[in-house]
């Protein structure tokens, strides 16, 4: 008898869905640029190029083939990790993206981590005493930070921490190889800038869910058992309160990996964000397609990971 436990089956089903979504994403990424008016060769060809040269290039890039054939060709390449060559630099798109991804992933991961480390205790305690001093201070800071756009926050941080106090470099990227300390100093301000926006969202979500959870009988019962407040908050109430947080965490991490365009530009960091800006402004279609595919994939994969994490948060989900 062939048997499989329910969890494994659920995971498999989810993965099948994932593949389907990724396929649709690839179609969308491909069509997106097909439908945009304008000929990519216009930017590629030097001015006054002959029709002959144009025809040669069209042949080279397969631009004369039917759309479906071109899609299949592109998809076939993509599946093998070949996203074509950049119109602009003639280098493989995959290589260009892979060079940039570690920078962006590091920024995204560090800022999300920092945001969690700050947001969880503050969210939990603000929710523990709604209307209390901490809650009011947090709420004030949250609305203050929410109303400051990301680039302004970055500029403020540069002004205060880099220009005035001289703690961190104003901009630029120092790779790991050139020293861990220098590297971390170079990422500190961009990470702070990104994290500040995440923190406020996380704190708000967690605080509101904590308030609701702590009104439930089980939280009251745990308090009635005389357990220390920290046990009740972190042991009993945090996990049932973290569904919204985890959901948003997945989306925001994916968004950050998709390119933190403004912040990367502001701090002159060689990440995916600066790459995509360049690609768009130079009509480097294959590059844009490749990045869109990457970003969409990250979104879909992280969302699946979030869905699969719910049973870890709440054992009641495991049953269904």
């Amino acid at each position: 008898m062939y048997r499989m436990n329910a969890t494994a089956l659920a995971v498999l089903r989810r993965l099948a869905k994932l593949v389907l979504v990724l396929f649709l994403v690839s179609v969308a990424a491909f069509l997106l640029l097909e439908l945009i008016p304008g000929d990519p060769l216009d930017t590629l060809l030097p001015e006054g190029a002959t029709a002959e040269t144009r025809a040669q290039l069209e042949e080279l890039y397969g631009l004369n083939d039917p759309m479906v054939a071109r899609y299949l060709h592109w998809l076939g390449g993509a599946l093998q990790g070949d996203l074509g060559r950049s119109f602009q630099t003639q280098l493989p798109v995959t290589q260009a993206i892979l060079e940039r991804v570690p920078v962006t992933v590091e920024l995204a991961a560090l800022s999300t981590l920092l945001a969690l480390v700050v947001a969880v205790p503050f969210g939990v305690y603000a929710g523990y005493r709604p209307g209390g001093v901490l809650d009011r201070v947090v709420t004030f800071l949250v609305s203050l930070t929410l109303s400051v756009p990301n680039f302004l926050m970055g500029i403020l941080l540069i002004f205060v921490c880099a220009v005035t106090l001289g703690l961190f470099p104003v901009s630029g990227w120092v790779p790991w190889e050139e020293g861990a300390g220098e590297h971390l100093r170079s990422v500190a301000l961009p990470v702070l800038t990104l994290a500040s926006a995440e923190i406020v969202v996380f704190v708000r979500l967690l605080r509101n869910d904590m308030v609701a959870t702590l009104q439930q009988d089980f939280a009251l019962a745990a308090r009635a058992r005389g357990l220390p407040t920290a046990w009740v908050l972190f042991g009993h109430a945090l996990r049932p309160s973290s569904f919204s947080l985890v959901t948003v965490l997945g989306v925001s991490l994916a968004r950050l990996i998709g390119g933190t365009v403004i912040v990367e530009n502001l701090f002159a960091l060689p990440g995916v964000g600066t790459l995509v800006i360049n690609a768009i402004s130079s009509r480097d279609y294959l590059m844009v397609q490749g990045i869109v595919l990457l970003v969409a994939t990250v979104y879909v994969v992280l969302n699946t990971a979030v869905d699969l994490s719910y049973p870890l948060l709440d054992p009641r989900v495991r049953k269904s």
Binding site: D217, F218, A221, A224, G235, L313, P315, R316
Partner: peptide, 24 residues
């Protein structure tokens, strides 16, 4: 106080469906 409530004085709540922590 630390070992009064829950130890010397304790309580059973009305609804057992909601008064146990679901995730533990």
């Amino acid at each position: 106080a630390r070992h009064l409530w829950g130890s010397q004085v304790s309580m059973v709540f009305q609804d057992p469906m909601t008064s146990l922590t679901p995730v533990l």
